[in-house]
């Protein structure tokens, strides 16, 4: 068994494309345990063996492994390789909880620690990442000022939160999903004078982009000088289902239905 796993790992290292199939084999073998091992050995080694012999061999292997594990867990704790083979003196701990509990002790930083603190003092903390929100920020960004765009969206969502008292990120994602059209209309011509509008399906990302564009467009008609305030108002009205984006989506869909016969042109 151990040999098989090593073998699978080796194969994976040599030929990554086959790694998936092999590891699948290993997984299925271990789930069936000893009964299936013989078949598996036969399939891997290519040599047929006697079923009983293979079974006894596999059982012997499993028992040997169990013994080996028991040696490494003296207090009858569950077997954890990361703990058992850790260097002497190390232990499991939650760094945050330990830091909070340790506050009572007096702490004297060394000169090296002070120097490190001075070096890192002014470094900003890495922002949290949300893929959708990062995308929306990217769309807003102008002239490479991404931090400013991030602040605008953050402020807008803060205002939305103050008015709804619910998670604004969830609400915004829901609105974008609801507002995004399923298709767009593409102008198709075969080189002649006639041209037709043909409906084309949109990917999830394209749908979100279209909805976000409509929200930004509508927010531009708001009164405030702060972009974040204008944006928050538009997001809020979209949450309430009043944004013009929804009408635009219906219009696009209607046009697509009218022109559905032209889909065959693209084939």
């Amino acid at each position: 068994m151990l040999g098989m796993i090593r073998f699978a790992a080796r194969r994976a290292a040599i030929c990554p494309s086959r790694a998936g199939i092999l590891s699948q084999n290993v997984r299925s073998a271990s789930s069936k345990a000893a009964d299936g091992v013989a078949d598996f050995l036969a399939s891997v080694n290519g040599k047929p063996e006697g079923r009983e012999q293979a079974d006894s061999e596999a059982k012997a292997w499993l028992e040997a492994m169990k013994e080996l594990r028991d040696e490494f867990r003296p207090d009858n704790e569950p077997y954890k390789p990361s703990k058992v083979f850790a260097p002497e003196g190390s232990r499991d701990y939650n760094i945050l909880i330990d830091a909070a509990n340790k506050e009572a002790e007096t702490f004297e930083p060394t000169l090296a620690q002070i120097a490190q603190f001075e070096a890192l003092k002014d470094k900003a903390i890495a922002p949290m990442m949300d893929e959708t929100m990062e995308y929306l920020v990217g769309v807003i960004t102008r002239h490479g000022k991404k931090a400013r765009a991030r602040r605008y969206l953050s402020e807008a969502l803060y205002l939305v939160y103050l008015q709804t008292r619910q998670d604004p990120v969830k609400q915004l994602k829901h609105v974008l999903e609801k507002m995004g059209p399923l298709i767009r209309m593409k102008r198709f011509s075969d080189g002649g004078a006639r041209a037709e509008l043909v409906p084309l399906p949109l990917s999830e990302r394209q749908r979100m982009r279209q909805a976000w564009d409509w929200i930004l467009e509508a927010s531009d008609r708001r009164q405030s000088r702060s972009f974040s305030v204008r944006l928050s108002e538009e997001i809020l009205s979209a949450i309430q289902g009043k944004s013009p984006g929804f009408e635009k989506k219906v219009t696009v869909h209607k046009t697509a239905i009218t022109n559905r016969a032209y889909i065959s042109l693209l084939k």
Partner: peptide, 26 residues
């Protein structure tokens, strides 16, 4: 002159602080 259009005219900080949002807090 204020832009044409509806809604809040103040900047973010003022809009947040002076729109009586605390009333809806728990």
């Amino acid at each position: 002159t204020p832009k044409k259009g509806s809604g809040e005219y103040r900047n973010f900080r003022r809009a947040a602080a002076y729109s009586k949002f605390s009333k809806s807090a728990s």
